[in-house]
Design a protein around this nucleic acid. Structure first.
Length: 922
RNA sequence: GCCGGAGUGGCGGAAUGGCAGACGCGAUGGACUCAAAAUCCAUUGUCCUCACGGGCGUGUGGGUUCGACUCCCUCCUCCGGCACCA
């Protein structure tokens, strides 16, 4: 039987679109408004695509096609996030070079995506592992290295500006070595090593010996964001803390900007909230506690003070002891000889505890140092403890403990028998027993001479200003966000454009030396030690360089007659390439710029207009990328402050059994199998018909059949009428332009005169529903409500099935609405019913403009409105659409059903909503 | 524990203060067929009723309103994030 045969259609149209460059974007056409619609580019795994992958891609493709139809210059690219741990793990497991597996996987992914008919401009494809691409990733790293964050201006600036400020004395040169401040020598008289150390203190990219997340199972260190419950996000191997010298990016400098920037973004509240929580801003105060001088050790302890951070300065009178993190630098000095053994043993024990153990066991442990501090508000002598519930990485790594008003301090104080003093009382004057449990809520300050009787908020403010007057403290804002650990002991990543001189000096390579290509290595497996795999590239790692001094800043050129140096052997993490790929898409072939300014200005005005991807990147990629973008913005390299204006997270697609799709559960449905059985158009339609884009929803292959049947019904309505039903034969009509009923044609010749009235009646009956459908589909696409847009088209098609005749213009308009969802199908049907279009240069229906609805056709002359009696629906009456209250109420009162429920009583209240309803209250 | 989000037929879902269950899946009956598939037609929240009709119904309990799936409060359940962050 002839009919809709998806297999015969889809490859043909994909080839036609490609050969006619239907979806090629002209990046230089800046006359039209632009629309940049972006997918989170995939990591090309060996598994290929399952039906979860095309969900977001289909949504963006519909938007891209819809925006093109509305006259926008659309950027809709695709590429590959191909560096990183998963690629390398896969390569090791299968004993092949990651370059080869990556190339193979990319080819497979590309083919699978192309089979779904996405309207990507494939000439813009990027691959993060291509030296032509990662050259610019390295280039941006050099910019980060060359940037410092000016707190006053809240802006990243070039290092040369910092040097200039030091040189001219505008900025004091910081003293990096602990001890009393010494008046410094002028910048140019400082030792080069001091200059370098000072600059490194400011750079956004710096090396530090820090306790890192070392994962022996993967043989690499990981970022905080890559560690879930003490295990690696990839592979689930245990992660331990150990100090190592690593590259860090100073994302904390941008914490405030990253927080502020969220306000103007069109992102979901939950996503913004996740970023806010991750940045973790908290307002409070830093307070200095002087050390009570130990008569036996006057020299070491005199003048020392410990700074703590607290969000509750109002409870300062209740501070009965202090706690330092076990790693706090003062611990050694503060520990008395009597306590030394216990303290050191506790430090060793704390260091050996993995993050996982710490998280599982939150019972309080600690040790007394033997020293005391003086509470600055009441001069009380309070003991100093160390305990691992105080974290090295947050605040000042030291706290004042207020056990009466903090649960953790309460637990610790109870265990170590420390005094608990109440300094906040409940607002309602009820009695609480702080010996039993901490009272953590806000209330009224008590037992606190300076702030007695003040509510918590006022008490905080007053206490801070008093501390500032006494110079014992100051207002302070802290963030949970830590600096980004940016190096990995891996082969399959971007090499750093950095060399180390034989004296240990770190020097960046000149931009002209980029790209620093990954060396070809036979053996790229982890070394089993902390040495990165690149340490095996002996030919590559030793170089000779010529180093230029730029006044404390340096740059290296490769030079065979220069001094010996060793390349940086770490590589960058996977996130590096994905931080800026949306910029490279604009012109991936540009050899002179990472993106040309004129191109960037047009395409990134307000950033990417729509970005769709998984919520799993809420705090990783999306935070890193915003950070890089802000640095690039500060350095004048991009024109917008935020990269992604509107962002939508598609919900995960579960297996048919409502469980997460996975190989081990055996519930994976591949996109290939769906394309083969039902076609790309049915797959696309169903992906969107399942439910709201952002919602998690289970797969249903029966549901795909449903939308497949829908397409077949459209086909039959327009092309192959049911031969068995003579009523349905030859439905399609062309209507004469003057619209006279005398002038109808069928596709096969003149319509018999006795059918003209029927044809006209069918035409008239479809006209209003058609325009309502245009409006519904248009509005629904605009608000990304694709499931209801499809429902509207199904409803309209159900009407088409009921009429005997359909005019060509109605059929074409309907197909135009369908095209973003089922592009191959729409093109095929159009090419059959309008074979003349090809001669007019129209290859695809996607080249035709979006239909416009006639507002006058949305309004009917009369409307049926519900009539309620006492708020309950009792009847319906038909009134003119512009009926006023008197008319509508009169019609309602005249209705026999309504009269029955009024039971002869006169309504005491009449509610009327024009065109909507009448409610009579008795 | 804290912070978000969500609870509507047998299932996916629609309705954002005004006719609850659009659209689709599934199911049941019928037409076509020797038969099956496909297709088409009809029914499909629930209870009472032969029927006409009517009662009840959007997790729970309350509130606001002429009117609540929709707004407010309480509780319950599920999903996601964070979690010794002072």
């Amino acid at each position: 039987m002839p009919g809709y045969n998806h297999a015969a259609i889809e490859k043909k149209w994909q080839a036609l679109w490609a050969s006619h460059k239907v979806f090629a974007t002209n990046i230089h056409d800046h006359a039209r408004p632009k629309f940049y619609v972006l997918d989170m580019f995939p990591y090309p795994s060996g598994q290929g695509l399952h039906v979860g992958h095309p969900e977001g891609y289909t949504a963006t493709d519909i938007i891209a096609r819809y925006k093109r139809a509305n006259g926008f210059n659309v950027m809709h690219p695709m590429g590959w996030d191909a560096f990183g741990l998963p690629a390398e793990q896969y390569a090791i497991k299968n004993n092949v070079h990651p370059r080869d597996t990556t190339a193979k996987n990319i080819a497979r992914f590309r083919e699978q995506l192309q089979a779904i008919g996405f309207s990507y401009d494939w000439s813009r494809e990027v691959d993060t592992t291509d030296p032509k691409y990662y050259r610019w990733t390295q280039w941006i790293f050099l910019k980060l290295y060359d940037t410092w964050f000016d707190e006053k201006q809240q802006k990243g600036r070039p290092i040369r500006d910092l040097i200039e400020e030091f040189r001219t004395g505008q900025r004091e040169i910081p003293n990096l070595i602990a001890g009393p401040p010494v008046p410094g020598k002028p910048w140019d008289q400082r030792l080069p090593s001091v200059q370098r150390a000072v600059l490194a203190h400011y750079r956004l990219a710096y090396q530090a010996e820090v306790p890192v997340n070392w994962c022996p199972g993967l043989g690499t260190v990981l970022a905080n964001e890559e560690v879930i419950d003490g295990k690696s996000e990839v592979g689930g191997f245990p992660v331990e803390r150990r100090p190592m010298k690593q590259w860090m990016l100073r994302i904390t400098a941008y914490a405030n900007r990253l927080l502020d920037g969220l306000h103007k973004l069109d992102w979901s509240d939950s996503l913004k909230e996740m970023q806010r929580n991750w940045i973790g801003q908290s307002e409070g105060a830093e307070v200095n506690f002087a050390i009570d001088v130990d008569p036996k050790r006057v020299e070491e302890t005199e003048g020392l003070s410990i700074t703590v951070f607290t969000t509750r300065p109002d409870t300062l009178f209740g501070a009965t002891y202090m706690v330092l993190a076990p790693e706090h630098p003062f611990v050694h000095t503060l520990t008395t000889s009597e306590q030394a053994e216990k303290v050191e043993s506790y430090q060793r024990w704390a260091r050996s505890r993995s993050d996982r153990e710490r998280q599982e066991d939150t019972k309080k442990t600690g040790e007394f140092t033997g020293s005391y501090a003086i509470n600055p508000v009441n001069a009380q002598r309070i003991p100093i403890y160390i305990a691992d519930y105080v974290l090295m990485g947050y605040g000042t790594a030291a706290i004042m403990a207020v056990p009466a008003h903090d649960e953790r301090d309460h637990e610790f104080a109870t265990k170590f028998n420390l005094p608990i003093v109440q300094v906040v009382a409940p607002k309602d004057a009820s009695i609480v027993d702080v010996q039993k449990a901490a009272f953590v809520e806000e209330g009224i300050a008590v037992n606190s001479p300076w702030i007695e009787g003040l509510p918590t908020q006022e008490a905080k403010t007053k206490m801070i200003s008093l501390l500032e007057e006494n110079e014992t403290g100051k207002r302070q804002i802290n963030y949970k966000l830590r600096d980004w650990l940016f190096s990995r002991q891996r082969y399959w990543g971007e090499p750093f454009p950095i060399v180390h001189l034989s004296d240990g000096t770190t020097v960046p390579l000149s931009e002209s030396e980029l790209p620093v290509k990954l060396p070809e290595l036979e053996d790229f497996k982890p070394t089993g030690t902390i040495d990165p795999p690149l340490s095996k590239a002996t030919d590559w790692l030793n170089v000779k360089v010529d180093v230029k001094d730029l006044g404390g800043d340096y740059v290296a050129h490769l030079d065979a007659s220069g001094q010996p140096a060793r390349r940086e052997l770490n590589t960058m993490p996977q996130w590096a390439g994905s931080c800026w790929y949306y910029l490279r898409y604009l012109d991936p072939s540009d050899e002179d710029n990472f993106v040309a300014p004129t191109i960037e200005k047009y395409w990134l005005r307000n950033g990417v207009d729509l970005y769709v991807g998984g919520v799993e990147h809420a705090v990783l990629h999306l935070l890193y990328s915003r950070f890089w973008h802000k640095v690039l913005f500060d350095r004048g390299l991009v024109s917008s402050d935020e990269p992604f204006h509107k962002l939508v997270n598609q919900g995960m697609i579960l297996g048919e059994n409502h469980e997460k799709m996975s190989k081990s559960r055996g519930n994976v449905v591949t996109s290939d199998s769906m394309v083969e059985a039902y076609g790309a158009d049915s797959l696309r339609l169903f992906e969107m018909f399942m439910g709201p884009l952002e919602q998690v929803k289970p797969w249903s292959t029966a549901g795909v059949e449903g939308v497949y049947r829908f397409l077949q019904r459209v086909w039959r309505n327009m092309i192959d009428p049911d031969e068995a039903d003579p009523n349905k034969a030859n439905k399609l009509l062309e209507r004469h332009p003057d619209g006279k009923t005398d002038a109808w044609w069928t596709s096969t010749g003149d319509l018999p005169r006795d059918q003209h009235a029927q044809a006209e009646a069918d035409y008239q009956s479809l006209l209003r529903p058609l325009h309502r459908t245009i409006k519904r589909v248009t509005d629904d696409i605009e608000r990304l409500s694709f499931n209801t847009a499809i429902a509207a088209m199904m409803e309209f098609n159900n009407l088409l099935a009921k009429t005997k005749y359909i005019t060509l213009d109605i059929a074409e308009t309907f197909l135009r609405l369908l095209e973003p969802f089922a592009p191959h199908f729409a093109d095929e049907v159009l090419s059959i019913i309008r074979p003349d279009l090809r001669g007019q240069g129209v290859v695809s229906i996607s080249q035709r403009p979006w239909p416009v609805y006639d507002p006058t056709l949305l309004i009917d002359a009369t409307v049926e409105i519900p009539v309620q009696v006492n708020g309950k629906l009792r009847s319906r009456v038909t009134v003119p659409n512009d009926a006023d209250e008197a008319t509508a109420v009169a019609a309602a009162l005249a209705d026999p059903e309504v009269q029955k429920f009024l039971a002869g009583k006169e309504p005491r209240k009449k509610i009327f909503v024009k065109g909507r309803m009448v409610n009579l209250v008795v």
